[in-house]
Nucleic acid binder design. Structure first.
Lengths: 196, 196
DNA sequence: CACTAAATAGAACGATCGTTTTAGAGGAGT
DNA sequence: ACTCCTCTAAAACGATCGTTCTATTTAGTG
């Protein structure tokens, strides 16, 4: 069978994707070597090229797709914990800030660092990152629509929320402070509240 | 004299910083080689290490500081062209979007790509990027204060504006579409307008 | 048991990386 | 003319990069 099954032991391929995603999240595409990935994953060099014949670029696409799903799950889960959508977005920002601090400011957005810089050279990577952004916007928009906002407003707000959270996470990471994320969360809540 | 003077011919050192800033903006820190920088700058290999004995890291710090000033000048200039601060921010986003498209989506924020990935390893780079963000927030806050907003509100809004524009620029770049920037600009304008 | 395919293991390749080192060219000051 | 110092020029270094290649081990099927 080619696709990953849900068996108990973590497959080698899955471990490789996980390590690649985490390392590229911290060091970027060019800053992460395949050797480092294989070591971190507890796999051998040959295994990486066995599962990813396309080499580093194919591996980066898989890593981005993993980050896509990971952050998507986080968004869906976090946005459903509070009734008020404005407060839900603010809570989202708070959780992101706490996680960033917990990692000592190393783990930012799992897609940004991987895509930045390599996107211009590899269209496949750029497309995977674009798909992630599009999905996240859709998730937030759906949540806002569920709270009664018209589709057009929900879409505009969702794009703003995703962009702002992304930028605030990077600002917080580079400033080593939760403040940009917390501030942006508060202002996004105010903006959303202004729509009803 | 050690600092750059304002003489006519573009100095070698200045050309090197310019090339480094532009290349790292597109390819990131690790994706840009010193050899490529020297070639692009029309300088020789030795010249780079003559002007930047600290090597690549020192060069990256200089590139970030250049981008800091460049984007700061852009902000100051663009925000002063319109009376209404909300409309000024939206205009800012539109100009960024147009510039991004004009470069065929290659030239994003001059600081983001350089700092991302290398910031964890090199504290000097992280600090230079943090200083840039701080300065930009100050510029926007000053503009908002000048329009009559209380200091506390101006500061919160400024942090949100800078973070959101940053994130929207990256989203637009990776999506190869002006929309994220235009949408974010509109919503930021609405948010600012809600403060009076 | 033999046969086959998947997965693991690691040596080897050419290329490029950042850096160091040494040598030469161009002017300014005495 | 001679010296000092900035700047240019390029060779050379060890290290690491992504990739390819060849064996070896493991697992599944007849």
């Amino acid at each position: 069978m080619s696709t990953a099954d849900g068996s108990g032991a973590t497959g080698t391929r899955e471990r490789i994707v996980l390590a690649a995603s985490r390392l590229m999240q911290r060091q970027g595409y060019d800053g992460t070597g395949i050797k480092q990935i294989s070591t971190e994953a507890g796999a051998t060099f040959g295994s990486v090229y066995h599962f990813f014949p396309g080499g580093k670029r194919e591996l980066a696409v898989a890593a981005i797709r993993h980050g896509d799903q990971e952050f998507g799950d986080f968004l869906r889960e976090e946005l459903d914990r509070v009734d008020d959508p404005a407060e839900a977005v603010a809570a989202c920002a708070r959780t992101l800030a706490a996680g960033l601090r917990a990692s000592d400011w190393t783990d930012g957005c799992p897609v940004t660092a991987t895509a930045l810089g390599s996107a211009t050279r590899a269209p496949e990577i750029q497309q995977a990152a674009a798909a992630a952004f599009e999905r996240w916007r859709g998730l937030v928009a759906e949540r806002l629509r569920r709270s009664g906002l018209p589709d057009a407003d929900a879409r505009e707000l969702a794009a703003t929320v995703v962009s702002a959270l992304e930028g605030a996470e990077f600002a917080a990471q580079v400033s080593r402070s939760e403040e940009p994320l917390l501030t942006t969360g508060r202002q996004l809540a105010r903006l959303i509240s202004s729509y009803r």
